[in-house]
Design a protein around this nucleic acid. Structure first.
Length: 872
RNA sequence: GGGCGGGUAGCUCAAUCUGGUGAGAGCAUCGGCUUCACAUGCCGAAGGUCGUAGGUUCAAAUCCUACCCCGCCCACCA
């Protein structure tokens, strides 16, 4: 029975097939009957509105690698997929849809709008999970969760109530980051800062007693809300003004000039307009001095009734108008160019307005302290470790977390107010009546919770917490989290805090942080730049395996990845190489293979030794989440050892039916183990090939096969011997390359064997293969040197290749002279070292010996080259 | 201002923690090859005073100090 294989590996045909096979067999479902240890990975839930990005590809590939290895190692694994409801983003998407119909969410009303969002969710919400499947992720889709599921929502409410009852949640008026487009508050870390060249306006405020005071501002429109001017009390130039009264233009409000130390006398004029309702610092000044807080804008960023005649203008229009009118009134003393940074909404990139608003906050300090302690006690380990410092740095300076959002899509805050007596109730279930006055008129807080307030519970809310479910008992706390470093604070640190606070346990042991995927110019991938490839296109073109393996190969640990489509070729080419190497074996396979330890050749032992090393190293690397190292080791083993040397070497044996039996056995044996090692990286192609392998008692699928262990043969010596043969062949090839002798021009080889005689025996044993691989016609052993040859030495063996008529003897002379020069340089270095008494006395014996050995070796080589040069 | 990371071949990175073999890969470049698994391939070559200056050491890409660049995060920014 011949096994047919196409010349070029076509991934698309097999990916669908194998994924459904595994899925139907339920291999990914955590098997509750297993008695083995469990292993859990927390999948970062992708955003419901998003589609698959290269970032997802990267960290999901890594997660899949771990989970597949652990599954093969016999752990009971759980990798639970899910999506988060992405409050602001989703609401934006649906609002945009509505806008096409000419409607706003207010036209629909809260209830109808939410129905609309749910409808949208049902339609598009699982797109990203479908896309992830194409990548081959082996998560347990039967346990898919969504942050707005009723169980998860219960968890959110539970968490809120518990924190509130502990006094860790409070409500208050503060300056928050307001996005006028999304009409909601944002947490500090949801604001992206961008440096711009803006303008600094110098505005003269008339003094009540006559004269002016000049203030500087980048946001003139906020002046309408000014309630003071502040000066540093130590500012000699200006302090005489403190206590006087200024008159606010347009509004004609009398505002005091006050002293406050926060003011930098060196900046601008040294006088600061104070707008407590529109600036965080000004707010603090306002608190210290008991100033009035005048809000001049509405939630859409339009000037309100406090803005006098500017009412109704959009904030930037108002700015222009105000500047123009100030100029006409001769109250604008100058405008300077000024570089400063502005905050933008991370969802819609609208400029953030610092805004006074009543919001809900979580006190972070008590939570942060425990999270720091957990890392210090090594209950949490970071990969790479350097991120631990960032983690401490953030937690030590943590600020309270603004968790309320003035949008509709999300978990509505479980706070209820009695409309009759004003009693505030924080309840798990909507109260039917006021506990105080029994009134049935109760209204719930309008605001919803920040999406992260549900995500930070993800590791346990997905397992049924607060209920003590079987899953929760078994799989929590989890083992590993793999995610990008960009959400270390947003999400990772908060999950740790939540885990400790609500379950008393850190939610995971290992945190593996991956870099960001960027383009070759180090820019972030983004749709607007057009540098963001569609992973699904890449998968179509290079195969899921190709993309996965390429990403592993090009991603330095914890550092950013510079992506280019060209780089995807590495993985695809490797898949093809793997395919064709297998093809070679199958083409030669005739239903007969067998194993006999006594019939192993030197190259068999060499590859077996090498395979054992690979298994040990890759297992170790993967256990340390060193995916790149592991992937490169697989790559090099297979391509540069198994294909380039082993397969090339054993081909001769395929011609003899008897020898082929044994050769093929080892070839299949090695590839079989290698496929299992490679399977976590390239799940599809490994399965496809593995299924064809002629080992009758293998498992039904490679996915549930055992993770390989070293075979334990000890062939270290044979390994070295074969390395010598490789070196001989390489040297001969180098000579040929040096003279550009085409390989179809056969050369003869003369060897003066002054090296090890056991190696000579091995050499003679495999002489046919060696001749073939070094493109040599005849080999002859000689006792005396011969002239007019290309010459080289290898471990004492003198190599002569007659070159007369093929190349210039002068060229050979030069080549050898160069070689001698090179060697002399090193010899001198080593000599110098060895001549130093300090070195000989102080350096470790092995090092001295090594140097001596090298020196001898080099000198010997030089001598030989010199002698040869003389009689060339 | 606070913190983190980096500077090694034209490009992207190993090796640095734990000092010691002729500093290694991949891509790009150059030369040779249609050898019956693979041109998504095979065989070779060229390319590096390891950011700069000191120091420690028998020995420094590796440790220490200073400096120069580059990137990132946090805070501030009237």
């Amino acid at each position: 029975m011949k096994i047919e294989m196409e010349k070029v590996f076509k991934p698309c045909e097999i990916e669908e097939k194998w994924f459904s096979f595994w899925d139907e067999k339920g291999y990914f479902i955590a098997n509750n009957k297993s008695e083995k240890e469990k292993y859990t990975i927390v999948m970062p839930p992708p955003n419901i509105t998003g589609s698959l990005t290269m970032g997802h590809v990267l960290n999901n590939t890594f997660q899949d690698i771990i989970i597949r290895m652990k599954r093969m190692q016999g752990y009971e694994v759980l990798w639970l997929p899910g999506i988060d409801h992405a409050g602001i983003a989703t609401q934006n998407v649906v609002e945009r849809e509505l806008a096409k119909e000419g409607k706003t969410r207010f036209d629909l009303g809260r209830e109808e709008f939410l129905k609309r969002v749910w409808k949208w969710k049902e339609k598009y919400g699982d797109l990203i999970l479908k896309q992830l499947k194409k990548l081959g992720v082996s998560c347990d889709f039967s346990r898919t969760r969504f942050t707005m599921d009723s169980e998860l929502s219960e968890a959110v409410i539970e968490a809120f109530v518990r924190l509130y009852e502990k006094g860790l949640i409070y409500k208050g008026f503060y300056i928050i980051n307001w996005c006028p487009r999304c009409t909601t508050a944002l947490a500090d870390d949801e604001v992206e800062h961008r440096e711009i060249v803006g303008k600094l306006y110098f505005i003269k405020y008339p003094l009540k007693e006559g004269g002016f005071i000049t203030v500087a501002t980048t946001r003139p429109e906020t002046m309408l809300g000014d309630t003071a001017v502040a000066i540093n009390p130590d500012d000699k130039k200006n302090k005489h003004l403190i206590g006087k009264i200024a008159i606010l233009p347009f509004i004609n409000r009398e505002i005091p000039i006050i002293g406050d130390e926060i003011v930098d006398p060196e900046f601008g004029t040294g006088c600061v307009k104070v707008t407590p309702a529109h600036d965080r610092n000004d707010f603090e000044i306002g608190e210290r001095h008991g100033l009035e807080k005048v809000i001049v804008m509405d939630i859409f960023g339009k000037m309100n009734e406090n803005a006098g005649k500017f009412k109704g203008l959009e904030r930037f229009e108002a700015r222009e108008r105000i500047v123009k009118e100030l100029e006409e009134m001769e109250l604008l003393s100058k405008i300077e160019e000024y570089k400063h940074s502005i905050g933008e909404c991370y969802r819609c990139h609208t400029i953030i307005e610092p805004y006074l608003s009543e919001e809900w906050f979580v006190r972070m300090l008590p939570l942060a302290e425990k999270a720091i302690a957990a890392a210090k006690n090594k209950e949490i380990i970071f990969f790479p470790t350097s991120y631990e410092k960032n983690y401490y740095n953030w937690l030590e300076n943590v600020r309270d977390w603004c968790i309320s959002r003035s949008i509709w899509w999300g978990h509505r805050i479980p706070v209820y107010e009695c409309e009759k007596c004003g009693n505030i109730m924080v309840k798990r279930k909507t109260p039917k009546e006021c506990v105080k006055c029994k009134s049935k008129k109760i209204k719930q807080e309008e605001k919803v919770l920040d999406t992260w307030f549900s995500s930070w519970l993800w590791p346990f809310s997905t397992m049924g917490w607060p209920k003590e479910t079987e899953d929760f008992k078994k799989f929590y706390p989890t083992d590993t989290l793999v995610t990008g470093w960009d959400i270390l604070f947003f999400w990772v640190a908060r999950m740790i805090m939540a885990g400790i606070e609500f379950t008393g346990k850190v939610p995971f042991k290992n945190i593996v942080l991956t870099g960001m995927v960027r383009d070759e110019k180090r820019r972030k991938l983004s749709k607007s730049l057009g540098n963001s490839p569609d992973p699904l296109d890449l998968i179509k073109k290079y195969g899921a395996d190709g993309v996965r393996f390429s990403m592993c190969l090009i991603t330095p640990e914890g550092q950013d990845v510079l992506f280019s489509e060209k780089k995807m070729e590495i993985g695809r080419n490797f898949a093809n190489k793997l395919w064709n190497a297998s093809r070679l074996l199958f083409l030669n396979y005739e239903n007969e293979i067998s194993f006999d330890k006594n019939k192993l050749y030197i190259e068999d032992k060499w590859i077996l030794y090498s395979l054992d090393e690979l298994i040990k190293n890759v297992t170790k690397d993967l256990e340390n989440f060193a995916f790149v190292d592991a992937a490169w080791k697989c790559y090099k083993f297979f391509w540069n050892e198994y294909c380039d040397w082993y397969l090339e070497f054993i081909k001769d044996r395929f011609k003899d039916k008897e020898k082929k039996k044994y050769a093929l056995y080892i070839a299949f044996y090695v590839i079989e183990k290698f496929l299992r090692i490679l399977h976590p990286f390239m799940p599809f192609i490994t399965e496809e090939i593995w299924q064809k392998l002629p080992f009758p008692d293998k498992k039904e699928s490679i996915t549930i096969s055992e993770w390989p262990a070293p075979s334990g043969f000890s062939y270290k010596e044979e390994y070295e011997d074969f390395e010598f043969i490789k070196k001989m062949i390489t040297i001969i090839r180098e000579i040929r390359g040096e003279y550009n002798i085409p390989i179809n021009q056969k050369l003869n080889l003369f060897l003066r064997w002054l090296g090890s005689s056991s190696k000579k025996n091995i050499f003679i044993e495999r002489i046919e293969e060696i001749k073939r691989l070094s493109f040599i016609n005849e080999v002859e052993f000689i006792d005396t040197p011969i002239k007019k040859c290309a010459f080289a030495t290898c471990e004492g063996v003198e190599i002569y290749i007659p070159i007369e008529g093929i190349v210039d003897i002068e060229k050979e002379r030069k080549r050898i002279e160069n070689e001698i020069e090179e060697l002399k340089k090193h010899v001198n270095k080593i000599k110098k070292r060895l001549m130093s008494e300090d070195f000989v006395q102080k350096a470790p014996k092995e090092i001295v010996a090594l140097n001596e050995k090298k020196l001898n070796e080099f000198n010997e080589k030089i001598e030989k080259l010199k002698i040869y040069l003389e009689h060339l």
